[in-house]
Amino acid sequence: MNRFLSNATNKIDAKGRVSVPSVFRTVLSALDIKDLYCFQDFVFPAISIGGPELLDRFERQIASEDPFSPQANEMSLLIHGGGVFTKLDQEGRLMVTDFIRDFTGITKEVTFVGRSDHFQLWEPQAFEAMQAEAREKRRLRGLPLP
């Protein structure tokens, strides 16, 4: 298993930690990801999390641009200014920091959402609403639903 799939909602404990779903920890282990790169998603009120190669991919995109271009500067602002590194603790928990809470509105629970090569942290009701909206948009366009 080498892709982040599905979603799960877990409670934040009294110390501000949340258990990462075991299926996601299995993928992290299979891909030998120990350092987690977290960034504020460009579109959704979610924190996207992957390994250092996720940051590398964005930095390659920046390097392909003129370093003084608006595109390169905007991308750097988003991925460097809106990103941090973190690690899971020994029990597979992630600290839900102000960086995460302030951007997502997460308070007591976290919905983990698989996005193939990375996963996201969502406020549960925001995820449910966004997923319902995506389904409705596909339906209105006459596209098949998964």
Rank of each mutant, 00 (worst) to 15 (best):
A134C: 00
M130E: 11
F39A: 09
F119V: 03
M130K: 14
A126D: 11
F99P: 02
F4L: 05
H80G: 03
G82T: 09
M1I: 08
E133V: 04
G81L: 11
A30F: 00
I33F: 14
P146T: 08
N10T: 00
G83D: 10
L36A: 05
S29E: 15
D89N: 09
D35T: 13
G81C: 13
F119L: 00
S29G: 13
S64M: 12
I106A: 03
F4A: 05
Y37L: 09
R3N: 11
N7E: 11
F99L: 04
P70F: 09
I106H: 06
A30D: 15
E136R: 11
D98I: 00
S22T: 15
H80K: 03
F44N: 15
R57V: 03
E123M: 01
L77A: 12
F99H: 04
V43F: 14
S6A: 13
D66Q: 09
L31E: 15
D117M: 09
L143E: 15
M75W: 00
I49E: 04
L121Q: 12
D89E: 05
R139A: 13
K11R: 14
I62R: 14
S48W: 05
E109R: 13
L5M: 15
L121W: 09
D32F: 00
T107P: 01
K11P: 03
W122C: 08
F112D: 00
L145H: 06
F24W: 06
K34S: 11
A132T: 09
T86E: 13
S76D: 10
A129K: 12
R101V: 03
V20Q: 09
F42Y: 11
R139H: 06
D66V: 02
G114T: 07
Q90Y: 01
F42V: 15
A126K: 15
D56H: 12
G92N: 03
V18P: 10
D98M: 01
Q71H: 11
P146V: 05
G142C: 08
A63P: 00
V23I: 13
K11M: 04
L78K: 12
I47Q: 08
H80P: 01
T111Q: 07
H118T: 06
A63L: 14
I100H: 03
V84L: 12
R141G: 02
D102W: 01
F44Y: 11
A134N: 03
G114D: 12
G142H: 10
L88W: 01
V113A: 09
A46H: 01
R141M: 11
D56S: 14
G92L: 09
E136D: 09
D32R: 14
N73M: 08
V113I: 06
I62W: 11
D117G: 01
T104W: 00
Q71V: 12
